[in-house]
Simulated assay, not measured.
Amino acid sequence: MCRSIKTLRAPAMPVVTDEDIHAAALQYVRKVSGFRAPAAHNRAVFDEAVAAVEAATGRLLEGLEIRGSGRSSGSGAS
């Protein structure tokens, strides 16, 4: 669905920044909503969705275990 979103887990991206997570969340919400930039009356719900996806993505990346590496994915970003 969102082909332009990069894989953020190791080893594809050894270092993931908060900006990487935000960009992926923003792209996802844009795709799902159909809006590149929402109208003023939709801005709050759009921004809330981006923040929720960012938080879920951060939890996902922190919790993933990468087999063979002896560690979790742990991006270091929060």
Rank of each mutant, 00 (worst) to 15 (best):
R9T: 04
R9D: 06
R9Y: 08
A10V: 10
A10W: 06
P11E: 06
P11N: 08
P11K: 08
A12P: 00
A12D: 07
M13P: 00
M13Q: 04
M13Y: 00
M13K: 04
P14H: 12
P14T: 08
V15K: 09
V15P: 00
V15C: 04
V15M: 09
V15H: 06
V16L: 04
V16E: 00
V16H: 01
T17I: 05
D18A: 15
E19Y: 02
D20Q: 10
D20E: 12
I21K: 03
I21A: 03
I21P: 00
I21D: 00
H22V: 01
H22F: 09
H22C: 06
H22T: 05
A23D: 06
A23T: 09
A23P: 00
A24Y: 01
A24L: 07
A25S: 12
A25P: 00
L26Q: 08
Q27C: 15
Q27G: 11
Q27E: 14
Q27W: 03
Q27T: 14
Q27I: 09
Y28M: 12
Y28E: 05
V29Y: 02
V29I: 15
K31G: 05
K31L: 12
V32M: 15
V32A: 15
V32R: 15
S33A: 12
S33F: 07
G34K: 04
G34T: 05
G34R: 06
G34V: 06
R36N: 09
R36D: 10
A37D: 11
A37M: 10
A37V: 14
A37W: 11
A37C: 11
A37F: 11
A37E: 15
P38F: 02
P38L: 02
A39F: 08
A39M: 07
A40G: 03
A40Q: 04
A40Y: 05
A40W: 07
A40V: 11
H41E: 01
N42D: 13
N42V: 06
N42F: 11
R43N: 10
R43L: 14
R43H: 13
R43T: 13
A44S: 14
A44D: 11
A44P: 02
A44F: 08
